[in-house]
């Protein structure tokens, strides 16, 4: 009897992997038609992801934001909300993280400085997530619409702050002041210049923690109940309004932590357009993980590898460009989404 559920969740995972493999296979078939050997493409992707300390560091650098945005999509999804707004949330989180330099330029302790930046990033993104949560709870506004709108507003707000309030006057670019060194995160030496350090372990720990939190806490249960049957949850006294607002706040906050990876870990300032569409790829990450919180780890890694590999494909081959990576990403999403079709048919 226990075996039944184990099988069910295992089967979902296996199906997801099969779907992803199918997508990858189709993508490789496409390059075969263009005259590049699929084996070579696989080799390039592998080399690009793991070939050297630097490459691996860069892969993790691309994976890390996807862990967060994957969570930012998967968590509200369990309460029945589709968060398209992770991009705006991470923008606001990063902007807030870069603002600590102005708010508290003279912090001495690195621990305090980083804790402060984390709070800023989390709250900045969290507020941006809580707004659609609030509108949904109080006014019934559809979260897909409001989160998309807020993505644009975040772009506008961040551009305003970057260009007029926090602007680095020495730079011709759209970027904020450089953060004092106390705010800089260390990168691993062995990554040889790739901007990723112990932070990756903290992020993995966050995923694992949220996995346990979602499953074992009363809040996680109520979230699931609302997502599954909001009417029944209401009959038994669970407030969907509270759940929606809190889950969107949490999601926004987690997405906002992308700001820590970028602002504290990488460029040490906020730059307009730094995100490689992490907020949107996060939707795909959550989809491939099938809402399983732990599944976000391999799923984010897969998309991180493909993002890292996009430039390498361009570099290492004559005919294939970065677009192949996006085609493969798309086919993987299709493969996973379509999996429902072919497994249902088999029944």
């Amino acid at each position: 009897m226990k075996a039944i559920t184990m099988n069910a969740s295992m089967r979902a995972l296996v199906k997801s992997i099969l779907g992803a493999m199918l997508g990858l296979f189709l993508g490789l078939m496409i390059c075969w038609f263009t005259g590049e050997s699929p084996i070579k493409i696989l080799k390039i992707l592998f080399q690009s992801a793991f070939g050297s300390g630097y490459d691996f560091g860069m892969t993790l650098f691309y994976t890390a934001p996807l862990l967060l945005t994957g969570l930012a999509v998967a968590i509200p999804f369990k309460s029945g909300l589709f968060n398209i707004g992770a991009e705006g949330q991470l923008t606001m989180g990063a902007l807030a993280a870069s603002a600590v330099a102005v708010v508290a330029p003279n912090v001495q302790s690195p621990v305090l400085a980083i804790a402060l930046a984390v709070v800023f990033a989390f709250v900045g993104g969290g507020i941006w997530g809580a707004i659609p949560g609030f509108l949904k709870a109080k006014r019934g506004s559809h979260e897909v619409i409001t989160t998309i709108m807020l993505n644009f507003i975040a772009a506008g707000v961040s551009a305003y702050f970057t260009l007029y309030v926090l602007k680095d006057p020495n730079s011709a670019q759209a970027e904020t002041l450089l953060l004092p060194s106390v705010y800089h995160l260390k990168a691993f030496e062995c990554f040889n210049g790739a901007p990723m350090g112990p932070l990756i372990f903290w992020l993995l720990a966050l995923v694992v923690f949220l996995y346990f939190w979602m499953w074992h806490s009363v809040w996680g249960y109520e979230l699931k109940a609302v997502g599954e049957n909001e009417k029944a949850a209401g009959v038994y006294g669970i407030s969907k309004q509270k759940i929606w607002m809190s889950s969107m706040f949490l999601a926004g906050g987690v997405a906002g932590l992308v700001g820590i990876i970028e602002v504290l870990g990488n460029s040490h300032r906020f730059k307009i357009g730094f995100s490689a569409d992490y907020g949107f790829v996060g939707i795909a990450v959550a989809l491939v993980a099938r809402g399983n919180i732990l599944g976000i780890i391999p799923s984010a890694l897969l998309f991180g590898i493909l993002q890292k590999g996009a430039g390498s494909l361009d570099l290492e081959t004559d005919k294939v460009t970065r677009d192949l990576s996006y085609i493969i990403q798309g086919l993987i999403i299709l493969g996973v989404a379509a999996e429902g079709l072919w497994t249902r048919k088999r029944k």
Binding site: K224, A225, E228, N229, K231, A232, A233, V235, Y236
Partner: peptide, 15 residues
């Protein structure tokens, strides 16, 4: 109003 159809008996029992 009563059940979470895609959850098992345990999860339904604590609703």
């Amino acid at each position: 109003e009563g059940l979470l159809l895609q959850q098992d008996m345990t999860e339904n029992f604590i609703l």
